[in-house]
Design a protein around this nucleic acid. Structure first.
Lengths: 276, 276
DNA sequence: TGTACATCAGTGAACGCGCGTTCACTGATGTAC
DNA sequence: TGTACATCAGTGAACGCGCGTTCACTGATGTAC
């Protein structure tokens, strides 16, 4: 028994990541895991995170509820999977939009186009997936604590935005030019911004594989000036604040539909972060 | 029977709003309604909106769950009461902060001080009441549709912010001065902003008593220019975007605590809306 | 002022529901020799 | 290649829980005359 268990373990360890010809069991398992996650996502879109129920997911799949425990050890783990998927999806939407801008215009014009494209892609994803958006940017799910595994995917959007600025900040003087007297950072904020600026320079080396992959596809310059970073953070909160207000109903009766307001604000933001 | 019912109805209608010497029953009812709402708010703070349970509230009050139905016809109505209370509380926090700035400095300096005071009061309330904040600015409660009665209280904060600008916009040229080429409003946004600008001028006349009261305490000038209004809306979304990110955990590991960032951003915002 | 009656607050039991999770089990799939 | 055994997926019943809401009721409070 010991020998068998060990040797099959070794074989599994050697084969399963690399070898694509899985056993039928492995294929079935992967397939069903996918189906469960998809059905859960569908339910999420219908009833929100609070109402997501393992039993309902199992029912829709024609299984018995206890069978799900072969795939996810608890409801919380299923939620985590959905959260990670959502962060990756919105992150990928932003990255793709940025990448697709291509080589039009001069350096500055391209960066601004990339910024606007990212903003619109992020909002587009949010509008198309409001419950998934609420899951990751809305009120925290009560009783749920986000595990470490979510922080990499959660960073994709802010990193993508910073990456757009980094493309320009290579000539850092340009971004920090203009009247920036109000930008003088003091006290705790100066420390935090400097720390984050330094961390970003090292990000590709020390964070998750996902982050490294991202960084490889849009390499970060060694340094983004702290004041630019703070402007970027403010823009980031502005962007998501407006999306949240739109999706959560604060614009009812005034700026609805919010397309025009959003487009206008994105432009103002681009200017604010130094992309004229 | 008919006569009695009618006459007691008339007496009730004549007396109860004005006369403070209620019957013992009326006093007990008012008292218990207050206690139920307070206990519900306490539970909200502990478990969030999704977890708020009539049975648990009744239990804490030493009542039987069915007794609550003498005070609120359903769970949804209790939630509505909490939502209205929360909007009123955060609105009042903003209004009070603005009012307390008093008569320091010149006109412009005072307006900027009021703006900053409002921002900090709003954030302060949110940090002190995170679950109530999440109830009104977080993901919508699934299955709940906000009734009309919430829109008046919900408008207090934006009206208070607009009121600060209005104090300056009386000399409208000042606020719209400077480089505002990016502010040119087009298409749907121009229409929406113009409509809102016009509606604000009429607001005290046609909206609820609460709004009228507010308007009386901080009277609005007849017109706020549409481009100023759009800047105010952008600032409004920025403000709440940052608060939401802070409360909902998006700053974990970077700008936390967020006090310094918030103070800095509030200043940038004040400048953005034309309060130098 | 007293009395008969109406109104109202609160009780306790019940209805019907759905949930997450556990557990012993059966039967199919995979594997070491 | 066949066989004995280990692994795994899925079943069905059960546990224990809490929820919102309804309803007939009792007893206290209010009120018209």
């Amino acid at each position: 028994l010991e020998r068998r268990t060990f040797s099959s373990f070794v074989k599994g360890a050697l084969m399963s990541p690399a070898n694509a010809s899985q056993t039928a069991r492995e294929r079935a398992r992967a397939e069903l895991t996918r189906e469960i996650t998809e059905e859960a996502r569908r339910q999420l879109a219908a009833v929100g995170a609070g109402g997501l129920s393992l039993r309902a997911v199992a029912r829709s799949l024609g299984m018995v509820s206890s069978a799900l425990y072969r795939y996810y050890p608890s409801r919380e783990d299923l939620l985590t999977a959905l959260i990670i998927d959502a962060y990756n999806a919105i992150g990928e939407a932003a990255e793709t939009a940025i990448a697709e801008v291509g080589q039009v215009g001069d350096d500055e014009g391209r960066s601004r186009a990339r910024w606007l494209a990212a903003c619109h892609a992020i909002r587009g994803w949010a509008v198309a997936h409001p419950h998934e958006y609420a899951l990751i940017y809305g009120s925290p799910v009560p009783g749920y604590r986000a595990p470490q595994a979510t922080i990499g995917p959660a960073a994709r959007v802010p990193l993508a935005l910073v990456g757009v600025l980094a493309g320009v900040a290579g000539v850092a003087g340009e971004v920090t030019a203009g009247d920036r007297s109000a930008d003088a950072l003091t006290g705790a904020l100066a420390d935090q911004a400097a720390a984050l600026s330094a961390a970003l320079a090292l990000a590709p080396l020390e964070t998750s594989a996902t982050l490294a992959t991202l960084a490889a596809s849009a390499p970060l310059p060694p340094v983004i000036p702290p004041d630019t970073l703070v402007r970027a953070v403010i823009a980031w909160t502005q962007l998501f604040g407006m999306i949240s207000f739109e999706l959560f109903g604060q614009f009812v009766g005034s700026f609805e539909p919010a397309d025009a307001l959003f487009a206008h604000a994105s432009g103002q933001l681009a200017t604010f972060v130094g992309l004229p």
